[in-house]
Simulated scan of single mutants.
Amino acid sequence: MEERDWSSLPFNVLAAVLEQLRWSSHPSFALSCRHWRSAVPPFYPAWITPLLLSTARVGAANLRYYSPYYHYNFEVVASCDDGGVARDAKICCATGRHLALEKTRLALDVHLVTGAVRQAPHTAYADHFDFVIYDGGGARRMFGIDAVLPLAVGYTSQIGDGDEGEWEDWTLTEYNVNGPRLRPSPVTNPVFHRGSIYLLGEHGRLAVYDPCKHAEGFKILDKPMSFGFEQYHDSYLVESDQGELMAVLFGRRGTPVHVIMLNEKKMEWEKVESLRGRALFTGTLTSMVKKTKFKWMQNRVFLPMFYKWPETIHVNIVSRDGELAFVPKSSSSNTKYSTMGDHSNGTCCEKCADVWSYKLGQQEARENWGAERVYYGVWVDLH
């Protein structure tokens, strides 16, 4: 009989082995030999970088994830199987694998993997909250913030364990017509920082709410008084992966770009010259600063604006041993299997030019003329 080695294992046996392995082990499997590589189905790790999540079209429940790394849109069809309750809802924020949506007098919690939708009880507090945010420790509490009139806040907590628990009734601060007023930056986002919620106002003022002192509501801090920069149009608040409270300021056409950090001893905003190898994802109601091993992404600020709309791939989002991956729905997909893409050499390729980004310290920033912006999207980190 002809002698055969491991490289001659039947295709169906290799496929069965792959189903038992973590997604992150597939690249090593594919490097074994050409035959083994041919058995690896096309997939795209969902954890490789933060993703821009948006709806596929207005009023639809399909979710679309844009990957800055691959420059693809991964659309998950019927990802919110909720009987229509999530349709026409506004995307508010995300934490981990949970997405918060808001409709008139209704807040929704969506699990991004299972598609399960849970709704918090209705509230007659206002027609709608201006912001909805999860707590800093996960998705166990949601806070609704009214920022148009005097600042007010309410919260609801999950009853029970796991993702099957219900949401209890809202606990609201007492409405006070003479309460604190802050003119919030129109596109900014509330941020949990050191256990409290910070809300950024125009010119750099901050309002703070301590959930442990709920009845006191928001308080406007005496300092900082201003950013110290006059030329800016949009501003976003973000807590970094190192626990720093930062703000990102953009000019009317995208430049100039300033990244500033709150010096909490002096209570003053200070200019940030380098992100120390990290990438900043902003421009939505959820912003984040993340460490990245890809050199072309380091010290770069990403905004959800495109010069060329990326290709859309219809996928299933599959969980295996805690890891998530986008798997094309059609096995005949012409997309290439890749875990390192075109950036494995650490350089910036032509794809990077399709999404608006700014590298700190660059002398000439590309303006965003002709770019198309994604509205009602949020950055999510599915790591």
Results as ranks from 00 to 15, higher is better:
A325P: 10
V77R: 14
W47V: 00
A78W: 00
S32H: 02
V272S: 09
E202V: 14
D381F: 04
L149I: 05
S338E: 09
N368Q: 09
L18C: 06
R205W: 04
V257R: 08
L51H: 03
K295F: 03
S8T: 11
C92P: 09
W356N: 05
G160D: 08
L63R: 07
A15R: 14
C93Y: 01
P42S: 05
T156A: 06
T114K: 07
G160I: 06
R300A: 08
V13H: 06
P304D: 08
D241F: 05
L280P: 15
L221P: 11
D88S: 12
L245V: 04
F326D: 07
E273S: 15
T123F: 15
L285C: 13
I48R: 14
F294P: 04
D82A: 11
D161H: 11
I91P: 03
N73V: 08
V40A: 05
G165D: 09
D241L: 01
T284A: 04
E102R: 14
V272F: 13
L249R: 05
G83E: 03
W309N: 06
A56K: 06
K336W: 05
L382K: 06
G59S: 12
V208D: 04
I197C: 04
A107V: 15
D146W: 07
Y134G: 05
M340S: 13
H128V: 01
Y44S: 10
D321V: 01
R118Y: 04
S338L: 02
H233L: 02
E372H: 10
S330D: 13
F229V: 13
R118C: 05
N316M: 02
G195P: 12
R37S: 13
I313G: 00
D130Q: 07
P256I: 03
G138W: 06
S196K: 15
C348G: 15
C92M: 15
E164R: 10
G84R: 07
A15N: 12
V58Y: 09
L199C: 07
Y337I: 06
G370L: 02
L303K: 02
Y236C: 04
I133T: 14
Y155A: 01
G283V: 00
E216I: 01
E372K: 12
W36D: 03
Q362H: 10
S25N: 11
P328N: 09
L9K: 01
T282M: 04
N345Y: 04
K329F: 01
